[in-house]
Write a protein that binds this DNA or RNA. Sequence first.
DNA 1: CGAATAGTGTCTTTAAGACACTATTGA
DNA 2: TCAATAGTGTCTTAAAGACACTATTCG
Lengths: 218, 218
Amino acid sequence: MQVSISVVMVAMTVIDGELTVAVCKRGSAPLKGRLELPNLPLTAADRLAQTAADVATEELGCPAADLELEQLSAHGAAKRDPRGPAVSIAWWTVLDAPTDQEGLTYLPVADVPTARLAFDHASLVSEAVDRLARDLRYTTVATRLCDDLFTMAQLRRVYEVVWGVELDPANFHRKVTGSTGFVEPTSKVSQGGPGRPAQFYRRGEARDLVSPITRPTD
Amino acid sequence: MQVSISVVMVAMTVIDGELTVAVCKRGSAPLKGRLELPNLPLTAADRLAQTAADVATEELGCPAADLELEQLSAHGAAKRDPRGPAVSIAWWTVLDAPTDQEGLTYLPVADVPTARLAFDHASLVSEAVDRLARDLRYTTVATRLCDDLFTMAQLRRVYEVVWGVELDPANFHRKVTGSTGFVEPTSKVSQGGPGRPAQFYRRGEARDLVSPITRPTD
DNA sequence: CGAATAGTGTCTTTAAGACACTATTGA
DNA sequence: TCAATAGTGTCTTAAAGACACTATTCG
């Protein structure tokens, strides 16, 4: 059986202390005008990863080279598209800041249940948020939600926003700096805010954490 | 673009202290006679999970109701099939024992690199083994690699085979029995072997472990 | 009996969590 | 000065690992 395949992207970023997801308005039928996740049709069978990169570059307005895209899952649907049966392959990624791509908006994930996203996109967001929350424990993905230079407090706020908890600053600092390859200290310090200036860090080489960051209320 | 989709299954089980994967011989071109993973073409776009269940039932000879199938990943290939471009969607599962389905053999995963599996199936096996090794830490999947009734030593051997390590029987016993919902004790005890008879356990209700089983040499 | 395996007790070490305390800035 | 935030010290508690020890079977 021949089906058409679309590649869908769940791109998350933190804005004003809220976890948000990039969405755009559908420009054509079916469900014209409804919010949906950025996506593109697959144009060649051996271009799965390339099409995901294209979605990032063209729909998200962010060069794929700056991102780490990860495959999430594949879903089938019989009548998504009037032209025939379709399968969607979902990917996810995180951005250190919202892009200002034309037509793209960032929807707080807390508002997704009431935003009536097109097709099964609401469940894809929920799947991606679960995946991100899990990956925060075992990987260094949180550093990709921060700027190139970030303070320990900024990194900690990523965990607090995604997990919806408060973490002890002292223990978090010790845990992160004690995890080989998580962050690298720089000689720069923050300035301007209240309180003692904080040291800036940048991403370390590690992708996986040897010992996980404990998520409270486990 | 219209492509054909195949659903591929990586089914693993332990035989004689070795982790093995179910493979069969290709019956048609291309690569006729080469070993490959069990698979079926997708026949309807909204039947992704159903087709995976069909592969289990028809190719593996194991009713899908007895298994937990999990999606692994999707891969594209331009010239897999001479009839046109194709995408494969891989799933994985574990069996408590090899099935005796006609034409199916169980290949030790250690032999996969030299067995020249068709297409990208060798990398799918490697991806599934990694996933299984990871899931042993965080889930109760190991109980599905055992019979309905199993001893603590049999459960421990699953970990030892997949991880390729030795675990302390005393600490393993305490950790597993102390993990809520992992196993349920029965009143039965083993008999016939050397040494003190062991208590039989059966699977508990839990799917995820509150606190992971530590993998040595982390 | 001794060899083998099951299972418990217990000590040591490590890591997490709580939180007091010091450090350094802006108002 | 105080309020605020950064970061260190240190105590308590929980869990992992090592391994001695007991329990129960077979040959």
